[in-house]
Amino acid sequence: MNRNRTSIAIIAAAGAVIAASTAQAGVHTWDVNEVFSSADGLIQYIELKETAGGVGEINLAGRLVTSETTGNQFVFPANLVPPPSLKHLLLATQSFADLPGAPTPDHIIPPNFFSTAGDTLRFHTVDTWVIAPGAIPTDCVSSLDRITGAGVNSPTNYDGGSGSVDAWPQRIADINDDNVVDTADLGALIAQFGTVGPSANLNGDDIVDTADLGILIAAFGSACP
């Protein structure tokens, strides 16, 4: 039995080696798939996707992702570890990486890598995405998907790690949903003080009290960046 298992394992490994050696390497089926940005550009990501189930699309070393508007370039430092089929690649700013819920970026790009006021993103010479002015949402939770348009962000890295971020973690204190924590929110909290809320019950402990006030004060003045 052990002999058979050993033989089968070796034959299987041989098959894998032969299959790997015959795979055609390239980069041609990677597309820029999704972009996300805060209004100030500090929190951004660019997600690429292998779109055609290519088994050998791994030769990214030296290939560029560029922004025509800002002139920024990112050069991939190394080839990918196969298999790449239908996987994603996540390029993101450090501020994005620091957000709760963010999957680990495969590569870090500088802030304001691309412009939210319209841009053309390119991957090498094989993909071009012209993004119209105003098309990229800056509400801190929505991204622009190449196929489906604006929607809740869903960054995914090469290992398959995925998540969704809110670029404004203090959003919880924005009681009236006007994208800024200000006196209007403070007034709403005071109006609900001592009750169960619900909208001013920021910590979810069934009563609006000084703990909720502390959260609001800590976030006071913040807005979706």
């Binding site: 055609q24 390239g26 041609h28 089926t29 055609a52 030769n59 090498h124």
Partner: peptide, 18 residues
């Protein structure tokens, strides 16, 4: 990079995805 861009050898893709 020019050679690789032209990539003269055919690629095996999942044609059903196209």
């Amino acid at each position: 990079i020019l050679y690789s861009t032209l990539d003269p050898h055919g690629h095996d893709l999942d044609l059903d995805l196209i």
